[in-house]
Amino acid sequence: MANVEVRRVGRHDFVAENDRGASVRLGRSGAEGAFSPVELLLAAAAGCAVVTAETLVTRRVGEGGLVARARDVRPEGAHELDAIPITLDYDTSALDDEQLAALDQVVRRAVEQLCTVTRTLKKAPPAPLTLPGPVPPGPVPPG
């Protein structure tokens, strides 16, 4: 099981760290030298797809130039994403049409079946929030 802790280190400045000691800075959108939470979500989606596809792709096209990109698709000012399109890019010039179609099929199937992040995003699981202190009775006041 993976665990990540995000600790405040300054005003609008945070560090996320995993159990293995890896860390990444995060902050508000536009913060210099930091990822925003949405950018981390995009990185997770693209990263999961590229990690899942890496062996399948490099075995067929070689080691060079495997890149994954994810985009933030939402209306201006919205506070939820409408989509997270992911693009994998690699050199297919050495493949004929049949090889390219076979690679496309195996990569799509692997990402759809094995990529935990994109599978989770499609499922939209709950993300309960726990706060310190007693739980107030009744509905939560708007905030």
Rank of each mutant, 00 (worst) to 15 (best):
E5F: 08
D96T: 12
R25P: 05
A16Y: 05
G33V: 09
A102R: 15
L56W: 05
P136A: 11
D91H: 06
L95I: 03
Y90R: 02
A124F: 03
L42C: 03
G143H: 13
A70W: 01
G77T: 09
G47S: 06
G64Y: 01
V67H: 15
K122D: 13
R108K: 10
V24T: 13
Q99E: 15
R20W: 02
E98W: 01
R69T: 14
A68D: 02
R69E: 14
Q105G: 07
H79K: 06
V61H: 01
L26Y: 01
L88N: 04
G21L: 12
D72P: 00
A94Y: 00
P128G: 05
L129N: 03
K123Y: 07
A22F: 11
P137T: 13
L100T: 10
G62P: 01
P37C: 10
A31E: 11
F35H: 08
V117L: 07
P139Y: 12
P37Y: 11
K123A: 15
G30C: 03
K122V: 02
P37G: 12
D104R: 15
V140N: 02
V50Q: 06
P141L: 04
A44E: 05
R109S: 06
A127Q: 09
R25V: 08
D96R: 09
G47A: 08
P85I: 09
K123D: 10
L66Y: 03
T130Y: 13
R8S: 09
S29M: 04
S93L: 02
A101P: 06
V6P: 00
A31P: 00
A43Y: 07
L26V: 09
R69D: 09
A94G: 13
A45Y: 02
D97N: 09
D104K: 13
V111W: 08
L121A: 03
A53Y: 02
A101Y: 11
Q105H: 15
G62D: 03
V4P: 07
P142D: 10
L40A: 02
C115N: 07
Y90H: 08
A46Q: 07
V140H: 03
A53I: 03
T118Q: 11
D96E: 13
G143A: 11
P136M: 01
G21S: 13
G64P: 01
A127D: 01
R11M: 12
P37M: 08
A49R: 00
L66K: 08
V15W: 04
V67A: 13
D89T: 14
G77L: 08
A70E: 02
A94T: 14
E32N: 08
R60G: 03
V15D: 03
P132K: 08
R71T: 09
D91C: 07
P142H: 06
A49Y: 01
G65N: 11
P75M: 00
S23P: 06
G133S: 15
A34V: 04
C115K: 03
V15T: 13
L66F: 06
D97S: 13
L88G: 04
A53P: 02
S93M: 04
D91W: 10
G21R: 12
A16T: 08
L129G: 02
T87R: 14
L81M: 11
P136R: 11
T130L: 14
T58W: 06
E32H: 10
V38F: 13
T120G: 08
Q105P: 00
A102K: 14
D89Q: 14
A43T: 12
R109E: 05
